[in-house]
Design a protein around this nucleic acid. Structure first.
Lengths: 255, 255
DNA sequence: CCTTGAACCTCTAGCTACTTGAGGTTTTAT
DNA sequence: ATAAAACCTCAAGTAGCTAGAGGTTCAAGG
């Protein structure tokens, strides 16, 4: 009967796929304590130890820490208590999953951009990644400013549209680097600004823009958000771009 | 101009939401080294440090270790190299996500069972969880035995069906505990076995059973798999159940 | 100018679930 | 008898922090 079979730690490790140091560790922390040969100190595992180890692995699989497993191991039946703790774990896992999904989406976006655009300036890339990373945070911020609808609209946008906007931003950034120094009323400069703003507006859609414009956002908050965002432009480039934009806006108003 | 603004570590921490000990740590490992007041040793953060921190957070968001971030931080442009490493990360994240999804599914199944069945014997529960945990592993094992189709069929089964089978198993286990000791040809015992086998067969479907029956699986492997699985039954119960099942099979053959 | 309290400093230890390695003993095979 | 393989214990290292002890510096009020 192999139920009475005894295993050395090496055999046991082989059979269960758990490394020897890990078994030592489980022994040390007291969740799996095999018999010991009293003279040599060698560990002797038996059939019951296999079952205990399986319990440990099962509880680990459910997300329990070894600490908690130690307590759970010797309870003979599970009740509502377990259910509660399982629900908690479930929530935690859901959150983890969401985060991972966010990261996956972002990485895919970055990969696509780098592939299609070739070499990308790192400052620029960081600013894009920053944008993705803070999408979720900004959602919260926007919601706190009662822009729930805006948030919903934005998250609904398909990934391709977001990538398209990213690309526009890449091109803008490249053009800024090229055109910087020219007069702000230069047709090329104004053309660039027109292209960029139109792309942004078409991404957002008219009603969203209206809603955003209607909202009274305090200076301070904007300031803070901008402080936190890495810009792909130098300070001088940023100033120049702002001036060019102001000029563009004034021209628009005149028409 | 707030671009020249200097921050104490407290202000900086406040502004960025990163704790002071973490900032100390980032300083220590060299990924964010602010200026220091030479007399007092107090850290002085500036605008550039905000940007560096944002880069760090962005790369962390993409899943990089601080170790790798240290190397990436000072590259001025990202090329195909980055793309490769991003793809690797993507794979890793995908795996993580899969695992989490597996756990989530299992936990949901356990929660449902515990809710609907009330208190559940822990040996039984462990054996169910073990089943879920090894679903994936067994898939590999089955695939190595050229049962790819079987695997595909099984993973396609909806969660509800799996739960239903789990429930049948729970009831079987309860009935075994009750009926144990009766003669194996007792109608109640045979009825129990019939119910259980029929449920299993209807879950698997005829063609799957045929495929499984056709497959020549070596004794050893089966033995090993069974050794690894915790059973909700005592050894005696298991033997009794096996006899009852043999009896049932013989009766079936006679018909 | 002195004092008080907040903010800061460094340094050490602790966390999880292990892995790695040193240095020594026991078992197994020849 | 001896060599190699397997085992032992104990200490230290891993990532990315957090917590705490014990001491210094800064800002504001009296």
């Amino acid at each position: 009967m192999n139920k009475n079979h005894k295993f050395s730690i090496g055999e046991f490790s082989e059979k269960t796929g758990i490394s020897i140091p890990t078994l030592h560790y489980y022994d040390e922390i007291g969740i799996l304590r095999p018999e010991k040969n009293p003279s040599s100190g060698h560990r002797i595992y038996n059939y019951q130890d296999i079952i205990t180890l399986q319990k440990i692995l099962s509880l680990k699989f459910l997300g329990y820490s070894l600490d908690k497993i130690a307590n759970l191991l010797y309870e003979s039946s599970f009740t509502v208590d377990l259910n509660e703790s399982l629900s908690l774990h479930l929530q935690a896992l859901d959150k983890e999953k969401e985060q991972i999904e966010q990261s996956i989406k972002s990485i895919k976006r970055v990969i696509k951009l780098v592939k299609e655009e070739g070499e990308v300036d790192s400052a620029l890339l960081f600013s894009l990644i920053h944008g993705m990373r803070t999408e979720y945070i900004e959602e919260e911020w926007m919601e706190s400013h009662m822009l729930t609808e805006v948030v919903e609209e934005l998250t609904k946008k398909p990934e391709e549209d977001k990538i398209a906007l990213d690309k526009t931003f890449i091109h803008l950034s490249k053009e800024v680097k090229q055109l910087y120094g020219k007069s702000v009323d230069d047709p090329k400069v104004q053309g660039m600004i027109k292209t960029y703003l139109e792309a942004s507006f078409s991404f957002l859609g008219e009603d969203l823009i209206q809603k955003l414009a209607d909202t009274n956002i305090e200076e301070l908050d904007i300031q803070e958000l901008e402080n936190m965002a890495p810009s792909p432009f130098t300070e001088d480039e940023q100033n120049w771009l702002n001036q060019a934009m102001e000029f563009y806006m004034k021209q628009e108003e005149l028409e």
